[in-house]
């Protein structure tokens, strides 16, 4: 990875600086809405970063990634509902539940390739969606209101907007750092090699499935963290966060920003959710504008926004 100055790195640095300084802007301008919006964006960016690990680097087109948002969220919500308010219990449970789910569906789905893999991950996520809808005790279809955010003692107060925002941002930057270390490690080389040419990797001695499965579990766990954050952000969790269109949103963020690039999913999440916010204020039919816009970027910007910036560098 070159540290030289180029448009790609400059935009990534700008985005990070903007995200870090955002609370300063909102406190000076009094624009609380921006903080609310960007808390949501940062959480979805984390989910997109986790999806990018399997989709962009690992070549595993999972169409069920939103399931972990729900699993992480329900872990927090159900524990809060049952009287366990401590984040030190809620969050590890959220991560463990997501990891376990990823392990089980990964072990089954990774036997398939291509379209079958897309369909089977979609099916598992929809299954999770219907299971959540059937949880009558926890609100069923209507979802579950969380009356008290995760309690981390005196360490951090999640009900404080700025503190919560920085917690989310910290998780996002931590997640990106983790992915960066992973993709350059021995493990990451193997996973990317498998994306490139599986037969070759097996011929030189790598058991493909177990490396893919571990990668799948890491990504699921990281997205479970985003789910725990999201539930705290909305004080609510419902089956809707697991619906297949949510998984589609995450895929779009990754593709829009640039698959297999470190900051691509973050840029994708910012652009996608900001556009969604503004277009939906303009018209009810905002998807009619968003759709063609996405098509244009995918058609003309192979490698997403980050890919476009890369071409800018080469002139």
């Amino acid at each position: 990875m070159s540290a030289s100055f180029n448009a790609r790195n400059a935009v990534a640095a700008l985005v990070v600086a903007g995200l870090v300084l955002l609370p300063l802007y909102t406190s000076l301008s009094g624009n609380v809405f921006a903080l609310t919006l960007f808390t949501r964006i940062v959480i979805f960016a984390l989910a997109a970063v986790s999806l990018n690990l399997i989709m962009g680097y690992g070549g595993m087109m999972s169409f069920g990634h939103a399931a972990y948002l729900g699993i992480g969220g329900y872990a927090v919500g159900i524990l809060a509902f049952e009287g366990t308010g401590s984040g030190f219990i809620q969050w590890p449970v959220a991560l463990a539940a997501s990891a376990l789910f990823a392990l089980v569906i990964g072990a089954l789905s990774l036997r398939t390739r291509g379209v079958y893999f897309i369909m089977i991950t979609l099916a598992f996520a929809q299954m999770a969606y219907y299971v959540a809808s059937g949880l009558a005790r926890y609100g069923g279809d209507d979802g579950l209101t969380i009356y008290k955010r995760s309690d981390f003692g005196g360490l951090i107060n999640l009900s404080n907007r700025v503190q919560f925002y920085y917690l989310c941002l910290g998780c996002l930057l931590g997640g990106i750092y983790l992915v960066w270390r992973i993709v350059n490690s021995r493990f990451g080389m193997v996973v990317q090699g498998l994306r490139s040419n599986e037969a070759r990797m097996q011929a030189i001695g790598f058991p493909a499935t177990r490396y893919r499965l571990v990668c799948f579990v890491i990504a699921g766990t990281l997205c479970g963290l985003a789910g725990a954050l999201l539930a705290n952000n909305t004080d609510f969790v419902s089956p809707a966060v697991m619906y297949w269109t949510r998984s589609g949103d995450l895929m779009v963020m990754v593709i829009l920003g640039g698959m297999g690039s470190l900051f691509g999913p973050v840029i994708g999440a910012v652009v996608y959710l900001v556009l969604e916010e503004f277009l939906s204020q303009l018209t009810e039919y905002w998807a009619l504008i968003m759709g063609p816009l996405l098509l244009l970027i995918v058609l003309f910007g192979r490698g997403g926004i980050v890919g476009l910036l890369g071409r800018l560098d080469r002139g």
Binding site: R186, G205, F206, Y211
Partner: peptide, 17 residues
């Protein structure tokens, strides 16, 4: 990568390969 495949397992997630 071929050398790595024959140098123990590759479940190392941190160091730069």
């Amino acid at each position: 990568l071929a050398v790595q495949a024959h140098d123990g397992h590759s479940f190392y997630f941190w160091g730069d390969a």
